[in-house]
């Protein structure tokens, strides 16, 4: 980035280009997850019955709960940007901290969900899983890879927002310069959108 400083402490920057760069990155994420959604759709198309049977193992309640958590975290993320735009630093920091806490809450739920699956003997390569129908093995393979990759994004997003919180506290992110926070927000909302599709495709096929 060009940080050529003028004498009047005027730093050259281009917020629109920064946001555009973030959007371009999000399109590559669309390709990453898109490929998996293609895989999911073809396998489901070919193994419709087995996908239905396998999906009964998933806990819809935890899925719903996590959906609500992520949607709310998207709300607080968006609110933190409005807060900094209104020059309300403390409120912005508070919203960012709530967002991070909700992200951790999501991961805690994920932990309990996955360990319950492991206790039932359902994990990649387990004897219980391998004894199931091929379509069910595919379903759980996709389930672990897709929700796992999504979970990784949640962790990365939470770390990113944590860095932004530090920037906000230190005064790097201010009322007049908040494009970093916006970029982190865009990433966070993308994670939310991916979950919006993962949730009905895995938890709601009954």
């Amino acid at each position: 980035m060009n940080t050529q400083e003028h004498a009047v402490s005027h730093v050259h920057r281009d917020d629109i280009a920064s946001r555009m760069g973030m959007w371009l990155f999000l399109f590559t994420e669309l390709l990453l997850f898109g490929g998996m959604f293609f895989l999911y759709s073809v396998y489901r198309f070919m193994n419709a019955e087995e996908f239905h049977v396998a999906a009964k193992e998933l806990n819809t309640l935890i899925g719903c709960f996590n959906t609500a958590i992520l949607l709310t975290s998207s709300l607080t993320m968006a609110l933190s940007i409005t807060a900094i735009q209104k020059d309300n630093k403390r409120l912005s920091i508070l919203f960012q901290v709530i967002t991070i806490s909700l992200a951790l809450g999501f991961m805690v739920n994920k932990y309990f969900e996955w360990t319950t699956k492991f206790d039932h003997g359902i994990y990649p390569g387990s004897d219980t899983l391998l004894a199931k129908e091929p379509g069910e093995i595919l379903f759980f393979g996709l389930y672990y890879v897709m929700t796992g990759l999504h979970g990784l994004h949640v962790v990365i997003g939470a770390v990113l927002i944590g860095v932004m919180t530090r920037f906000t506290i230190k005064g790097v992110i201010t009322k007049d310069s908040f494009v970093k926070l916006e970029a982190a927000g865009l990433y966070w909302h993308l994670v939310d959108i991916i979950w919006i599709f993962l949730f009905p495709l895995f938890y709601l096929i009954t």
């Binding site: 998207s74 993320m77 916006e182 909302h189 939310d192 959108i193 599709f197 009905p200 495709l201 709601l204």
Partner: peptide, 19 residues
Amino acid sequence: TALIIASIKSYLVLTIFMH
């Protein structure tokens, strides 16, 4: 139906949350 509802939700997130 599930995909249409998910698309509406994504539209809301894209237009409002993502500005």
